[in-house]
Amino acid sequence: MVTLVLPTGSLHEPTLRLFDAAGLTVHRQASRALRAHVDFPGIERVVFGKPREIPGLVADGVVDLGLTGTDWIEESGAKVEVVHEFQYSKTTSAGWRVVLAVPVDHPARTAADLPAGVRVASEYPAIARRYFEEELGQEARIVHSHGSTEAKVPDLADAVLEIVETGDTLRHNDLRELVVVRRCAVQLVVATQADPVVRATAEKVALLLKGARAATEHALLTVVAPADCWDRVRQELPRYWWLLGGDPETVVAQATYELRGVAEAITRLTQAGAVQVVETPMRKLVTA
Rank of each mutant, 00 (worst) to 15 (best):
A36R: 07
V63K: 08
D39G: 03
F19P: 04
L65Y: 05
K50H: 11
V46E: 09
H37W: 14
T25G: 12
G49Y: 10
G23T: 08
R35E: 15
G69I: 00
R32G: 10
V63N: 10
V26F: 12
D39M: 03
L67Y: 07
R28V: 09
R35N: 12
V26Q: 11
V63S: 02
A59Y: 07
H37V: 06
H27M: 04
H37S: 15
L65K: 08
D64G: 05
V58N: 07
A59D: 02
R45V: 09
S31N: 13
P41I: 14
L57N: 06
E53K: 05
Q29A: 14
L57T: 00
A59R: 03
Q29R: 14
R35Y: 11
A59E: 01
D60R: 15
E44R: 12
A33I: 02
G61W: 03
R28N: 00
R45H: 12
D20W: 00
G66M: 09
V62I: 13
P41K: 03
V58D: 10
V26A: 11
P51C: 13
G61M: 08
I54Y: 00
A33D: 15
I43K: 04
G69E: 08
A30V: 01
G42P: 00
R45P: 02
V62C: 04
I54V: 08
D60M: 09
A36Q: 02
I54K: 04
L65V: 05
F48G: 09
S31T: 13
D20F: 02
R32C: 05
V62E: 13
L65M: 15
A36M: 06
A30T: 14
T25C: 03
H27Y: 04
R28K: 15
